[in-house]
Nucleic acid binder design. Sequence first.
DNA 1: AGACGAATGTAGCGACTGCTACAAGCGCCG
DNA 2: CGGCGCTTGTAGCAGTCGCTACATTCGTCT
Lengths: 180, 180
Amino acid sequence: MSEIRNTRNVMLEAMARHALEHGLSAASLRPLAKAAGTSDRMLIYHFGSKDRLVDELLHFLASDLAAKLDGSLPPNRALSVHDCVTEIIGLLRSKPFHAYTRIWLDIVAKASCGDGSHRRVGGGIIDGYTDWLEKRLPADTPDMAGTVALVLTVIEGTMVMDAIGRSLLADAARERLFAC
Amino acid sequence: MSEIRNTRNVMLEAMARHALEHGLSAASLRPLAKAAGTSDRMLIYHFGSKDRLVDELLHFLASDLAAKLDGSLPPNRALSVHDCVTEIIGLLRSKPFHAYTRIWLDIVAKASCGDGSHRRVGGGIIDGYTDWLEKRLPADTPDMAGTVALVLTVIEGTMVMDAIGRSLLADAARERLFAC
DNA sequence: AGACGAATGTAGCGACTGCTACAAGCGCCG
DNA sequence: CGGCGCTTGTAGCAGTCGCTACATTCGTCT
């Protein structure tokens, strides 16, 4: 049984690599199967349907990203809010993380179109990052919940601006924000 | 010749309605043609290729949205920054505008995947709204450029949060923002 | 050895994609 | 009237999509 689970994890890892490289919109069964070294037939056999496959793949990618972020930004580093935000955005803009933001925006777009599954996954990811962020902001931050929400919202806005090539606007926004 | 242009505009309007209703990802030639009362053959004939069609469609939708926003929020209304942002977000969350935000997030996702055309369209739209917003904030706003950037970024972040069902987080962020 | 279920390969289904070749209809000008 | 060019319909191409039926192999247990 752990044999099966192992096979699935190996497949998921290979497919995750493929999705990060080629985007989620190109994640159809046959290319994914090719990347995982099997056939589309086998993917359906192991995951039941494409929807369930994508669901598992997104969860895999989410925890993958979470682990990477934990590694790059361990908690309790006593950074100011300003420095923390700057570091996170610098991180998200770096090449290894950019692939994740592409997929993230794909999830958001599909969620916005009423796709319940993607909305659930996306909501869960954001919930995870509210906790994650709270552990990285100074413990004595006033109105912690509000600050976390604001930082998260500005980060999401920055990702949108980056996507359409208006990073400077996002930088100006952050500068203006920390003027107060 | 104006006959042709008229035909194209009629088609664009019908296709825009279809795209708003069914999302941009479902905007393949045959459904669009059906919505416009013609055939895929004719769409290619009039627009040259699907890429050019989508390009024109997005520009049409952008100016359509701009006109609607102008109608709902004329300039120089002497609102405070807070009230202005609140009104814009209330507007974007209302039903007639939600369809546009779905398409907007689709554009952003495709732009993030390196699609130059979508990135260009998206960048142009944001540029338009920086001008648009500046004419609606109080003229004596200190650091106007920075404020516009911040407001725009927060609005984009709010749209992401709304898409994945975390509107409350965006609300908390706005509240925290206007506490200073 | 034989039986059984899990795993896997082959081939194919029907629907859809963007796009095109061909031909027929149309009005317009000489 | 005759031809000419713009517009349009029909049919089809080659490809991809998610998914399935069928048959086979494989390891395991009796």
